[in-house]
C-alpha cells in the first residue's frame, strides 16, 4: 500500500475536545462525553482498549442520521479516576446517569468485544432505557470460556512484559487476515502507536481483570427483549459464523449479520459497511416500535 493510500484509509483522530464539559453521573464520578448529531440516540460502549474519540471515524455516517454519544468509562480515558475499578453494575449505573444528564430516555447501545457484556447487563437491568443492541464481535454467550481464557492470556502478557508486547500478542488475534496483509508492518506499527496513546498499563490491567468477571450464564440472553444485532466478521477467530447465528438465536429478537473478511473488531475493516448494517437494523427496529 502506498503512503498516500495509508494516509487516506488509516485515520485515527484520538484528540480530546478540550471544550467538552464532563458529565456527572453519580457521587464523585464525572465522565468525558461527546454527543454528535440529532435524533434517536446511539451510545457507544468502550471495550477498555478504546477511548471516546476513537469512535468518531466509525460513527461519522451514523451521526448524519442519529445522535451518537461516545464516552469514557469511569477510571478510563478522561473520565474520573477512582481508587478501585468500578464493578459492571457501577459502569451500568454510570451509563444510566449519563443518559439522564443528557436527557435521553432510551438509546441503542453499540458495543464491541468486552463491552458487549456491559450492553447485556444494561439491557437486563434497565430495559426501558435500551431501544436495541448492536454487539460487534460479542464475547457473551456459549463461547465465554474461550473468551476469558484469551483475556487471561492477554493479561499475563501485559503483566509479564509491557503494552507493546501485549499489542504484538493481540494484533493477529483481533485484526483480520486481510487487514494484516494489506497494511503490512507499517500499519501494525501505526495502530500500535494509537493503542499506546489510548491506554495505560493500569487501565488495561483493570479492564482485562473486570472482563473476567460477571455472570457467564447463556440464559441471561434469552431474557433480553430489545432487538439485537450480532455484527460478526467471518474472520473473527473468537466466534465463527455458525456460532454467531446460534448466538443470535438465543435472543428473543436477535439476528446475526456476517461481515466478509472482517476480524474481531469488524468496523475496523469496513467502517462504511458496518454503519450501513447498523443504520438498516435501527430503521427496521424503529418500524416495529
Amino acid at each position: 500500500m502506498s503512503a498516500d493510500a495509508v494516509q487516506d484509509e488509516y485515520y485515527h483522530d484520538l484528540s480530546y475536545r478540550e471544550d467538552t464539559p464532563l458529565v456527572r453521573t453519580r457521587e464523585g464520578v464525572e465522565l468525558y462525553c461527546e454527543s454528535t448529531g440529532e435524533g434517536i440516540a446511539i451510545t457507544t460502549l468502550n471495550n477498555f482498549f478504546f477511548t471516546a474519540p476513537f469512535w468518531r471515524d466509525y460513527t461519522d455516517e451514523l451521526a448524519k442520521h442519529y445522535r451518537v454519544v461516545s464516552y469514557d468509562l469511569c477510571n478510563h480515558g478522561h473520565s474520573t479516576r477512582l481508587g478501585q475499578e468500578p464493578a459492571w453494575e457501577e459502569h451500568a449505573a454510570d451509563l444510566v446517569g449519563l443518559l439522564d444528564a443528557l436527557e435521553i430516555d432510551s438509546t441503542y447501545l453499540l458495543a464491541s468485544s468486552a463491552s458487549t457484556q456491559l450492553a447485556r447487563d444494561v439491557a437486563l437491568t434497565y430495559p426501558d432505557r435500551v431501544r436495541g443492541l448492536v454487539l460487534a464481535g460479542p464475547v457473551v454467550g456459549p463461547q465465554i470460556r474461550r473468551h476469558r481464557m484469551l483475556q487471561r492470556a492477554w493479561l499475563r502478557t501485559l503483566n509479564s512484559h509491557d503494552i507493546p508486547v501485549l499489542f504484538s500478542h493481540m494484533y493477529p488475534e483481533f485484526v483480520s487476515t486481510q487487514m494484516i496483509e494489506e497494511y503490512g508492518v507499517p500499519g501494525f506499527l501505526g495502530l500500535r502507536e494509537s493503542f499506546l496513546a489510548m491506554s495505560t498499563p493500569e487501565e488495561l490491567n483493570n479492564g482485562l481483570t473486570l472482563a473476567q468477571q460477571g455472570d457467564p450464564s447463556t440464559e441471561l440472553l434469552t431474557r433480553i427483549q430489545a432487538p439485537t444485532l450480532i455484527a460478526l466478521g467471518d474472520d473473527d477467530i473468537l466466534l465463527g459464523p455458525t456460532a454467531g447465528h446460534e448466538l443470535a438465536a438465543l435472543f428473543p429478537n436477535g439476528r446475526c449479520a456476517i461481515m466478509p473478511k472482517a476480524g474481531h473488531v469488524p468496523f475496523l475493516d469496513d467502517p462504511v459497511g458496518f454503519q450501513e448494517l447498523v443504520h438498516k437494523f435501527i430503521d427496521e427496529a424503529e418500524e416495529h416500535v
Binding site: M1, S2, A3, D4, V6, Q7, Y10, Y11, H12, D13, L14, P164, S168, Y183, G184, V185, P186, G187, F188, L189, G190, L191, R192, E193, S194, L196, A197
Partner: peptide, 29 residues
C-alpha cells in the same frame, strides 16, 4: 498523528530500501 506516522514509515521503506520489522520498539519511532 499516527496516520502520518504510518505514511512516513511506508515512505521510508521506499526511500531507504528496507522493510520494517514488527518487533521494532516504540522508542525507534
Amino acid at each position: 498523528p499516527s496516520t502520518a506516522l504510518v505514511a512516513l514509515l511506508v515512505a521510508m521503506e521506499d526511500a531507504f530500501g528496507f522493510e520494517w520489522a514488527d518487533d521494532v520498539r516504540p522508542e525507534v519511532l
